[in-house]
Amino acid sequence: MSEYDLRTKKALRQVTLLEYGFGPETMKLRKICPECGRANGAQDTHCTDCGAALPSRTLYDFYLSRHRCCPGCGVAVTSIAEYCPECGARLPKAGVTQREGAAV
């Protein structure tokens, strides 16, 4: 947790979500085994449970692939957004949502 500057409200919120297993930070730290479904660390290349090769993409990449994203900074945005709330970039029209099947 040392990489977070807990003096800001935003960082404190991030750590709280991480502690309870919610939020984007949690997804960035996880990869799901396509064989057994076990959650592994983002740095792992093979499942610690069944030994299967893990995909290169994290749970966060999987999440982004199911949503409309900002072409500027890459965060997922809601379908009604016209501007990115993070970087302020003008967003292309909604409705170009890429949906993929479940990871397993």
């Binding site: 309870y20 919610f22 997922a76 809601t78 957004a81 016209e82 501007y83 709330p85 993070e86 302020g88």
Partner: peptide, 24 residues
């Protein structure tokens, strides 16, 4: 958890947005 819905129904939003999503 903010919306009480799954991420397919409600994607995460910036909790501390720097810009308005509607007028920019």
């Amino acid at each position: 958890v903010n919306a009480g819905l799954c991420l397919d129904c409600a994607p995460w939003e910036a909790e501390f947005p720097a810009f308005c999503h509607q007028c920019g």
